[in-house]
Amino acid sequence: MRCVRIRFSKTGRMIYISHLDINRLMTRAVRRAKLPMWYTEGFNPHPYIAFALPLSLGQSSECEYMDIRIEGDMTNEQVKDALSAVMPEGVGIVSVADPVFNANEIASAGYAVTLEFADENEAESFCYSADALMSGDELMAEKMGKKGHRKVLKQVNLIEQIFGKEITLDGSKVILSLNLAAGNSVNLNPSLLIETLEKNIQISSKQQHIVREDLLTASGKSFC
């Protein structure tokens, strides 16, 4: 039995499929691909499939990671070919490799965000104000957090979770390149950041397109 790390993209119509449904979708895909899956040995045997970091519904991604355990001597290249042949539209197998990092080493994620505004004026004032807000010391937002088992609303300073930002204006569009805290302990969803910016600036975008481009470790290496 060995562990294989599969990097896949989630684009197009697939962005409307939740993380839980992607899990189910992949369980069926490995069956169709006839991968020699290793099964857990419990009362209810099931194939071992684990995902690195869930993606919010509505966001695209170039860097989703799924670990599976297989038996036999199938090569990574063969796994890639077998899986690619059975994927539905919107899920692309980017690479198949032996895992290097542990999923809990993920520290941040890179996002490309495109916001479309009603007109150029709105875009311009949003761009200017958002840059100023993200360059400040404090940008507070309410976030659901856990206190023991209870869910509680807590105040979070988002600035502490923004590791990198670039903001550019393109007509009625604003393009953000963000590096945000990611992982199991601290995670900043770009949707929350945009929502907070919009609330503070009091200008809302008409459309947003969010792409997760890369997952990074604390030392800045690409997760793989």
Binding site: G12, R13, M14, Y16, I17, S18, D21, L57, G58, P88, E89, G90, K206, Q207
Partner: peptide, 18 residues
Amino acid sequence: ENILLKVQKPGRYVGGEL
């Protein structure tokens, strides 16, 4: 597409299934 993120379970309305 413009309204999909405003509704529950948008996956119901997009097609493209295997």
